[in-house]
């Protein structure tokens, strides 16, 4: 399996504040994330709001440069031209389509920008893509506001695929949709992945969705990965207390699957002033002084990397 995207210790920091009498602060939105994406595979990034998922997405699509670290696309450092290989599907289908353009011109625009083909060829490509994502030909000349959320997300997916990317970064692509529509869009994404051999960087906070679509799972907390490994292992045997907490919070219909509930206490620490030790220590039921003072580095447990001092004893 060839690697299409590789992130090496990506960091993205923002300078904030800095008023007249206040010092400037640095928010470490993403602080040391590494992963490899292979052809036809899905890496899911999960975590609560503010953990740096969306920043990671913006760095992966080269909308923002990383503060440090390297992003490689097919083995070469990412350049704007290589950026066409990475396209994005956004969370909100109501804001991600230009309201003044028809579906047809939205789909043809990426081709026009990159001067691919002539008019008729672009139109043919757009119509073919519409058929692939399940839109009807007569919808070619309609405007986005005439569509439902699920249909709009189909349009957004079609647009992301127009340039034939290798990687699609999907930032919570189904969380704004009705549950009944979510499954349709997820299945569409998986069908398209098989057809075009796409690699997905799938960002979500919905573990049910992740269980459905992902091959690997990265759990992020305050800009750092706390647990990263194959889906089956992470879901079946979560080693990091934060992962256990997330899994316990997932609602389940089947009573046998209901795990004992672990109450989540406290708030995410301020990213402006992260704790010296383990970022999760303030909310962790197992935390002791070592956790509060010494930051755990990721360690390998049979393919799963876990950043916790007590991964052996807890797991």
């Amino acid at each position: 399996m060839t690697v299409v995207m590789e992130a090496r210790d990506i960091r993205r920091h923002y300078a904030v504040g800095g008023g007249l009498f206040r010092p400037k602060g640095v928010v470490k939105s993403v602080d040391g994330v590494s992963f490899t994406l292979r052809v036809g595979q899905t890496l899911a990034v999960v975590g609560e709001s503010g953990c740096g998922k969306s920043t990671l997405a913006r760095v992966a699509t080269m909308l923002e440069p990383p503060t440090s670290g390297a992003l490689l696309i097919e083995g070469a450092p990412a350049t704007p031209a290589a950026g066409r290989q990475v396209q994005m599907v956004f969370q909100n289908p109501y804001g991600s389509l230009n309201p003044r353009k028809t579906v047809g011109s939205i789909l043809m625009e990426p081709l026009a920008i990159n001067r691919r083909g002539d008019g008729p060829a672009r139109e043919a490509a757009a119509r073919a893509m519409m058929a692939k994502v399940g839109l009807r030909p007569e919808q070619f000349a309609r405007y986005p506001h005439m569509f439902s959320g699920g249909q709009r997300q189909r349009i957004a997916i079609a647009r992301a695929l127009m340039l034939g990317p290798k990687v699609v970064v999907a930032d919570e692509p189904v969380s704004a949709l009705d549950v009944s529509i979510q499954a349709q869009v997820l299945n569409l994404l998986m069908d398209l992945q098989d057809e075009f051999q796409l690699a997905y960087l799938f960002i979500s906070h919905d573990l049910g969705v992740v269980r459905h679509i992902a091959r690997d799972v990265m759990v992020m907390y305050l800009g750092r990965p706390v647990e990263f490994g194959p889906k089956e292992q992470v879901f079946a045997w979560p080693r990091h207390p934060y992962t256990r907490m997330l899994l316990a919070a997932t609602p389940s219909v089947d009573p046998r699957h209901r795990k004992q509930s672990i109450t989540v206490r406290g708030e995410l620490p301020s990213p402006l002033n992260p704790p010296a030790g383990c970022a999760f220590a303030s909310r962790c039921p197992h935390a002791d002084n070592r956790c509060r003072n010494e930051r755990p580095e990721p360690r390998d447990f049979g393919g799963v990397k876990v950043a916790c001092h007590y991964a052996e004893t807890i797991g």
């Binding site: 991600s96 990426p110 920008i113 340039l163």
Partner: peptide, 17 residues
């Protein structure tokens, strides 16, 4: 600030466009 501008930008559109 809206996503469709980001999408157009990531398709490679220049500033004038």
């Amino acid at each position: 600030a809206r996503d469709y501008v980001t999408a157009t930008r990531s398709a490679g559109a220049g500033t004038l466009r």
